[in-house]
Amino acid sequence: MKILVFLLALCVSLSGWAQTLTLKPGHPQSYVVKRGDTLWDISALFLDDPWRWPTLWGANPQIANPHLIYPGDRLTLVFLDGQPRLVRKASKRLSPAAQITPKRDAIPAVPLSVIEPYLNFHAVLSPEDLAQAPVLMGGEREAVIYAEQDVVFVDQALPLGARYGIYNPGQRFYDVEGDHFLGQEAELAAVGQVVESGEISRLLIHTSRQEIKPGQRLMPISENTLLSASFQPHPAPASLSGRVIAAEAQAREVGPLQVAIINKGHDDGARAGQVFAVHQPGTEVVETGSGLAVEFREPADRRAYDEVMALLADGRVIRLPEVYRGELMLFKTYDKVSYGLIVNGRRPVRLADKVLQPQPMLFGSSRD
Rank of each mutant, 00 (worst) to 15 (best):
F296H: 12
Y334V: 04
I342W: 01
S228V: 03
R297S: 09
V259T: 05
F296R: 13
L320G: 05
E327A: 07
G326Q: 02
G345F: 03
A270E: 09
P237G: 01
L328C: 03
Q258L: 08
P235V: 00
L226M: 11
G269Q: 01
L227I: 05
L330A: 00
Y334N: 04
G282L: 03
D335T: 09
L341P: 02
P321Y: 01
T288Q: 08
L226R: 10
R243H: 05
N224C: 05
V308S: 09
P299V: 15
D306L: 13
M329C: 01
L311V: 13
G340F: 08
N263K: 05
L341H: 03
L341K: 00
L257R: 12
L226P: 04
S338Y: 00
A277V: 06
A304Q: 13
R350K: 15
L292W: 14
R271I: 10
L226A: 08
A300V: 09
R347I: 07
I245Q: 08
R319W: 07
V286C: 14
A272T: 12
L311E: 12
L311F: 13
S241C: 06
E327M: 04
G326E: 02
A229H: 07
G269R: 01
L356Q: 02
P256F: 07
V294W: 15
E322S: 11
A304V: 08
A300E: 09
G345E: 04
E248A: 00
L356V: 04
N263H: 05
G269A: 03
K354Y: 10
I262M: 12
L330I: 02
P321S: 04
V337I: 01
E223R: 07
R252E: 15
L356F: 08
L320D: 11
D268N: 03
Q280Y: 09
S239M: 10
A251V: 07
A272G: 12
E248K: 14
R297L: 15
E307P: 10
L227D: 04
R325N: 13
V278Y: 10
R303H: 13
A270Y: 04
A300L: 12
A310E: 13
E253G: 07
G289L: 14
R303N: 13
L356A: 02
Q250F: 11
D306K: 06
A270H: 05
T288E: 07
D301F: 09
T333F: 04
A304C: 10
R243K: 04
Y339G: 05
E284V: 09
T288A: 12
N344Y: 07
R347S: 06
P256K: 15
V285Q: 10
V355D: 00
A229N: 14
K264Y: 02
A249F: 14
R347Y: 14
P235I: 00
D301S: 11
